[in-house]
Design a protein around this nucleic acid. Structure first.
Lengths: 343, 343
DNA sequence: TATTTTTGCACAAACGATGTCGCAATTGAA
DNA sequence: TTCAATTGCGACATCGTTTGTGCAAAAATA
């Protein structure tokens, strides 16, 4: 069971009869700075290749006190929105020389606290977090250790971290206005969870748009981002005498439930009732009636977060403290055929 | 700009007037082994707490030559199947003391090779990889470095790594038999990419089931796991004189395309045509007609992979080489209302 | 030829934590 | 009182890198 010994610069040094120093300098690219001759460089490089050398990152990290890694904290990757962000973050950061330590928190706040502590102990150089909950105290662990943080989709009043999010408010506002311009007056909003800031902003956008257009028929129902919620609320809505002319579901999950309820009652979209939603899942195009939806700017959010984090890290390294940034990215609306034009 | 100095065991040693050795022993739990008195322990622990000490992982790694981290290589998290696996892997491994380094390869083989190299350099203790491509040479980098590997969903003939996958063959076979038992004879299979092993196994399952039941009308069309592919092939199929009675799409993406084509031609499921698929996305329940589907055993696959990897790591540490395992997990079928019973 | 300058490389000290040895002081036995 | 055993802790080397400093030999200048 020949335990194959690790190849280190020492190995190479012995093989090439050159000092550790020289080998190190060639291998980490500072050869010209220290005037290592081309011949010597060639010798080292060849030996390294032949021995299949890779530097020991732990040693490098220790010496340089840099980890070359960044933490990514997400509520759960089962949510496509978070998964898409994770996807972009992961391979974008890799091209910039960082590896990504993933922490899936299973939508559990306590788990998130643990995750953050672990990341702090690992000396990650920065953290992108999509918070699962309300509390912010764990983020302070990172702040105290001077680790740059960028939040996605949730804003903390009390701590100075940058954040970037969809502009839920304007998204919902403009979608509601679109319905109003199409002649709808009885527009119902089926919301998700009250404890989610994004939800409340969307609701506010809807309400403000209704108010701005002097619509009296303002109605918000529901309480969770689930298909069941959408199904139940829709069933209740359509069996009333005064049926809404349009339903605005605040997520695609809710929308699916609504769809099922409508199908059961043989109500056709958009003839019998109009339906719009938030999220723009890829399957919307392929439903019996393609559904008009607000699309979260996933790419922008991910890329801006990365840039923000990297800038903060760089500034930090130079002793500069960057101002907190609060970025709201406007979502786009994807118009399909689920809204009936009433006027 | 008071650069707050890192708190190390040295700091604690100075504060407590105890030696580095003693502090270290208390802090890493080997106090009783070295007979450190309770008083001393208390002193150290309190100092550590007050100073908010966390061990430097790089130093620990270097010293112990362990990284406490495991690599996870996925084609892309935009695919919910991979995202779900990543989700489970991430928080399950965390509870076992490992952190997960995520490598999203954007479905690009070259990127995957780079990702694997990076993981090797980081001395991860093991790697779970869902390969993007056919080639296996990069996996050898890990093998050579004695890093345990478990593959998901793809089997390499030429290298001794364990793998676990859905039993695509039996899944497709039994679904096809179900259609046959329901009286269907003209069953078309719309496949995904030929270069994906999973696809070919599913196709084989379909063909074998048809052959086993002496059905002459065997027909496989299509060439990619996309909605467009499903749409185009379905349009072609339904305008022929001899229209199939059932369509078996090999992924939900393909299914969505088929659905669109059927809706455009006002063909109702299951009255005019039956439709079954592979993947079981959560929205299948909420389509106009809920679609019968094969569900990949995501949880089992993820958990078994983890167990396999951890076992291999443990065995490796003891100098034992575990046998390669090849596990095929049978998928389940979720029966909904998209199949018409013809007899 | 003598002196300065440049070229090419090596020594040694870190980074933070762990583990092997060893030594003093305390306790117990004789 | 004496010697052995036990208790409680510290000095030091080490893991694999990087880097400031130093010092020969070669080249350039005088």
């Amino acid at each position: 069971m020949s335990q194959l010994k690790h190849v280190t610069i020492k190995t190479i040094s012995e093989v090439t009869k050159l000092s550790l120093t020289t080998v190190s300098r060639v291998l980490n690219g500072s050869a010209k700075k220290y005037r290592i001759s081309d011949d010597t460089q060639k010798v080292v490089l060849e030996a390294a290749k032949k021995l299949n050398y890779t530097p020991n990152q732990a040693a490098v990290s220790l010496r340089l006190s840099r980890s070359f890694s960044i933490g990514l904290v997400v509520p759960t990757l089962s949510n496509p929105f978070f998964a898409d962000i994770a996807s972009i973050v992961s391979h974008s950061l890799r091209t910039k020389g960082y590896s990504v330590v993933l922490m899936d928190c299973d939508e559990n706040e306590a788990t998130e606290v643990e995750a953050v502590k672990l990341l702090a102990a690992q000396n990650v150089e920065g953290v992108i977090v999509i918070p699962s909950g309300i509390d912010s105290s764990h983020i302070n662990i990172l702040i105290k250790r001077n680790i740059p943080v960028v939040c996605i989709d949730r804003y903390y009043e009390d701590i100075p971290v940058s954040y970037v999010a969809t502009n839920h408010y304007t998204g919902a506002f403009s979608m509601t206005e679109y319905l109003i311009r199409a002649g709808h007056t009885k527009i119902v909003c089926i919301q998700g969870s009250h404890s989610v800031v994004a939800n409340n902003l969307r609701v506010k956008g809807y309400k403000d748009a209704m108010a701005a257009n002097k619509k009296a028929w303002v109605k918000v129902v529901g309480n969770s981002f689930t298909q069941d919620n959408g199904y139940i609320e829709t069933r209740l809505l359509i069996q009333k005498k005064e049926r809404p002319t349009a339903i605005f579901t605040l997520s695609d999950t809710i929308m699916l439930g609504a769809l099922k309820a409508l199908a059961e009652e043989k109500l056709a979209i958009p003839y019998d009732i109009s339906l719009v939603t938030f999220d723009n899942s890829s399957y919307l195009d392929f439903l019996a009636c393609p559904i008009t939806s607000i699309a979260q700017p996933v790419n922008d959010i991910a890329n801006i977060s990365i840039k923000l984090l990297l800038d903060t890290i760089k500034a930090n390294a130079n002793g500069v403290k960057l101002d907190q940034m609060k970025l709201l990215i406007s979502p786009s609306t994807v118009y399909r055929q689920s809204v009936r034009i009433l006027k």
